[in-house]
């Protein structure tokens, strides 16, 4: 089971650290990261393994949105199944 975490918003110091810190806290293993900064807009997509989480997945999604609110960013944490289902026949 994997999930996709996307972070979009104004670039500030330490976004990657904070997001991956929460992943560690919930025992979500980071598999892949793509990140780009265009002018001052930060966009990151992170693929994480959620099969060994130490809490419910919904708690992780709540925690990430809360971090997004704190940093003034949009953070979406979504089960990868929605992307696979939507974009393949």
């Amino acid at each position: 089971m994997r999930a996709v975490i996307t972070v979009i918003g104004k670039d500030t110091v330490g976004i990657l650290t904070k997001v991956s810190g929460i992943c560690t806290e919930y025992n979500a293993n980071v598999i892949e990261v793509t990140q780009s900064v265009l002018q001052d807009m930060f966009a990151m997509i992170m693929l994480v393994d959620i099969s060994k989480l130490n809490k419910n997945f919904t708690e992780l999604t709540d925690r990430m949105s809360q971090l997004g609110d704190e940093l003034g960013l949009k953070i979406h944490t979504m089960h990868e199944e929605i992307f696979n289902t939507m974009h393949s026949v």
Partner: peptide, 8 residues
Amino acid sequence: DIEKEYGI
């Protein structure tokens, strides 16, 4: 729960 997990 589904709403949160799939973000829809």
